[in-house]
Design a protein around this nucleic acid. Sequence first.
DNA 1: TTCCAGGACCCTG
DNA 2: CAGGGTCATGGA
Length: 275
Amino acid sequence: MKIRVKNFSLKHTLECGQTFRWHKIDDWYYTVRENRLIKVKQQGNYLITNSSKNILNYLLRLDDDLNKIYKKISKDKIIKQAIKNYKGLRLVREDPFQCLISYICSANTNIPNIKRQVLNLSKKFGKKVDGFYAFPSAKRLAKASLKQLKGCKLGFKAKYVLAVSKFIASKRFNLNRLRNMTYKEAKKELIKLPGVGSKIADCVLLYAFDKMEAFPVDVWIRRVMQKYYFKGKMISNEKIVKFAQKYFDGYAGYAQEYLFYWAKNNKLHWSLDKV
DNA sequence: TTCCAGGACCCTG
DNA sequence: CAGGGTCATGGA
């Protein structure tokens, strides 16, 4: 099926580092969602896919009015440059459990390692679907042993993944309930989970629960914010979050994604900050 | 060899 | 509340 799109870049959307379960083979991107294989590629203003318009609209936020969002967040030359470089980058809508576990795995490591960890989990515990692997359910991961999880190279995060999976599988923690909460309420709940702090909670709220005011602060965002928005001054993560939420006026999450990709691709490092 | 990566947690002062 | 050490893993 062929879907007309405008103001959309599949490449930037899937390769900017917000999502870890799309595999690129030639021009096609593959993932498994709800135990079904989805494949998609972009040709100019069209997406070619075996899926449906509704599903891709949902997963890739094709209905977001990007021009309106650009207008809201284009407040300075840094963010303008990032928007210009990555035009068409959209946030994604991830499965909440997959998103939560993926970002728990993201602690103190890099994107290739995160991808490796979630792929290992999928291969070991997920269902095989047309040659690819679904991300395992909470129920399945809750039955895993710590040794098996460490075998997936999760390192010190294995215990968090196991504990969180057990909380969710046992229904002592209801992930779906977060969808109807405010950003603040939902964040307060997420942070109660072991291995989940402010940054990972913001990632889950942004990529899985539509909380556009979430502003995950990782090392790259810290660098770009500290250098260009706080004159190099050391500042707490919470102050960065609060500043961004006010400054980017309801769309901090979108601004964050562009700034993150920009900082990372420009190899922004501390040595440059100190100039 | 040392440093770093989409951090959280624990302990100190 | 801020600052530092620690935790597994793999690439530069």
